[in-house]
Design a protein around this nucleic acid. Structure first.
Lengths: 155, 155
DNA sequence: CTCCTTTTGTTTATGGTTCAAGTAATCCTA
DNA sequence: TAGGATTACTTGAACCATAAACAAAAGGAG
């Protein structure tokens, strides 16, 4: 017997596409990056966000926001990156509760080496998969969903 | 200094929305389901796909496909569900290599109890977040991406 | 028929994420 | 200017996912 569908057929197809995406895409991104650069996707994001910041320095809490991760997750990951000398940590002078994550030269080399392949992969899987217009719509919907997720966590 | 952008600004925004989605949405879905039904999202998918099948019976490999998971992951999860008497396993009579996963009455009760809240959550976060037309576009793009991910794994 | 390959699934080990608790500095209120 | 609350982050344990090795049945070539 089949469970009742409280979504229309088209809504359900969209929902299943989205759930497929969130279960399969992380693995696909991790696979390319670990194979070609020895980094997980999340590790790459941490390094990339630092590289894009003005001087390669960001507070842990800011970095957690930018990478969409929890502070706890970030703390563990930065600890691992620190062991490889890709990042180092300093307690912030202004507010001694806070700590700054700082990209090392070696860390910068590593992201810069990883970036081209990662971007090419992003193009192959996503950006070049559909028309520019559909991609733009896809992005706007994604942002709308993220807003709702954020609302959920607050309220 | 900022890393060069090999994506246009709009492409990059879309890409970041997607990466945000794949890192935050799983947690949001797990949170609702564990809180309200004591199931992870993946566990829910396993039970739901069984419930939607004709007689609550599916081969492990078919179930893995439907839930977007690896056979290994599924095997572990079904083992846990089996301990809770939500599912049981039988080796398939036709092909004795294969295993059928079978939804128990208790398992069916459990999904049916969980479903309304889950669907409501899906509506709140996604389906009702945007216009029907944008949602449809979003779904089509998602499917196109999934196709590319599948291609990647093969060739 | 026999052997080799492929399919199907399980299991073990490893590593990463999350959750809850803990620490330390800062803020705020009276 | 205490004192308690809040913020910012870290840590340890429990849990889950992944990957690689394994087992067992089926298919296929000679």
């Amino acid at each position: 017997m089949s469970e009742p569908h409280w979504l229309t057929q088209e809504e359900r197809a969209t929902w299943l596409a989205l759930t497929g995406l969130i279960t399969k895409l992380p693995g696909a991104l991790d696979a390319q990056l670990t194979r070609d650069a020895g980094l997980s996707f999340y590790e790459y994001m941490v390094l990339a966000m630092l590289a894009e910041s003005d001087d390669g320095v960001l507070r842990m809490s800011a970095l957690a926001e930018l990478t969409n991760g929890s502070l706890s997750r970030l703390s563990h990951v930065v600890q691992r990156l620190e062991r490889q000398d890709l990042v180092r940590r300093e307690t912030c002078a202004d507010d001694r509760r806070a700590t700054n994550a700082i990209l090392t030269d070696e860390g910068r080399d590593r992201v810069e080496a990883a970036a081209p392949g990662h971007v090419r992969h992003a193009r192959t899987l996503v950006v070049d998969a559909v028309s520019a217009q559909d991609l733009a719509t896809f992005g706007r919907v994604g942002e709308a969903i993220l807003d709702r997720v954020a609302d959920q966590r607050r309220g």
